Simulated scan of single mutants.
Amino acid sequence: MNSLKLIAPVRSVFMMKQMLEAKVDEVHLGLKPLQLINLSFDSRHQFVNGTPTQVESLEELNEITAMGKENKVKVNFMANSKYVPESLKRDYLFHIKLAVEAGVNRITVSNFSTLNWISQADFNIPIDVGTFMAATNIGYYRYLESMGVQRVGIPQGMTLDEINDISSKTNLELIVTGNFGGGNVCGHCRLEECPTENEIGQGCRTGYKVTDSFSGVDLENGQVLDGATDCSLCSIPELIDAGVNYIKLIGREVPNPITTSKICQIYKTWITEVEKGRTSKQIYNDLDQEDLMWNMMWKPRFCEKKRCSYLNTPVTNSYV
């Protein structure tokens, strides 16, 4: 059986401690840039709804990487902005240099310019490609191999059959996003740039106030754009069989890191039990009987609403 490892989000020393307790295999993080006010060199604003999304200082990054080394947990540095202008090339590479010197193990990028810059700078560190690159065909994967890329994030709209076909034709290791999916090229809709008083996060997941033009009645907090999938737990055996090597969870911007670590713990438990030969149905039933968060939050929000990433549901049938 192919081994499936778990990559978890981190933004602070406290969050790193939580993830170590959850026994994750790897963490991903960003570093607050010196040069920018609210944008960053990764795929998140520095704050989302008032919550920081990145490690706040170089000193804290050093502490996190030291904890990773001590516990044999790799640290993946997110430098995966969808676009970095040529005018910021020097600042971007300096940002990467700080992370490499702090001891990160890998770099993730999400556009060809930054991939070329890092390759030419010869940082001598493994490079991953994030889901924002939307690598959806074999020619794309072979080109990434030729560029020295080692791992690639599978776009969130790809089916199990498509993933299985890709894995049989590439030497790249494959990463899927396990929770809170958006679209096939998630992050490219530009909704995050909407001028609002406070950032709304992912525009497709945000609640909107909609006014009925005939009656004048306001419908509060309607999630009119939200058709995303959120959970891959029941499909973990199929993902392993399809050749997926890593499952990555997002959530650096989640206000309560303990909640995020609990999600990671559920995923890690599921993976471990599958590797012991147990079925998803058996693991599901165990959580039903034993886990409070599963029954109070996870099942009502995801299972009962059929927000399953790889199962045949009304959500996936209407997926855009």
Rank of each mutant, 00 (worst) to 15 (best):
K82N: 06
K72G: 05
I64K: 01
V185D: 04
Y284F: 15
D218H: 01
A66E: 12
N137C: 13
T65E: 05
L191Y: 09
P9A: 06
Q150C: 10
F94K: 13
Y267Q: 10
E192P: 05
G222K: 15
G139Q: 13
F180L: 14
L61E: 02
K17T: 06
I154F: 09
T229E: 07
E60V: 02
N76E: 01
L191F: 12
L98Y: 02
N116G: 02
P255F: 06
A102R: 07
N62T: 08
R278C: 00
G182Q: 07
Y284V: 03
P314T: 09
Y319G: 02
N38K: 14
E26P: 03
A79Q: 07
M16F: 06
C194M: 15
A8K: 06
Q35H: 13
K69D: 03
P314C: 10
S113Y: 10
G222T: 12
D288Y: 06
Q46C: 12
A242H: 06
I258H: 00
L249D: 01
D161Q: 13
C204T: 08
A8Y: 03
C189D: 15
T53Q: 03
T211G: 01
P33V: 05
L58A: 04
Q202G: 12
S309H: 09
D161N: 13
E70M: 14
C264I: 08
Y284P: 01
Y208F: 14
T229W: 02
Y83W: 12
M67V: 04
K32V: 14
N184L: 13
R307F: 01
L29Y: 04
M133H: 00
I263N: 05
N137E: 11
V73A: 08
R301E: 11
H28Y: 13
G207Q: 10
R142V: 03
T206D: 00
S57T: 15
N137Q: 11
L20I: 12
C186S: 15
V185M: 07
N38A: 03
T136F: 11
V185R: 13
F94M: 09
F214Y: 13
K276R: 15
L311C: 14
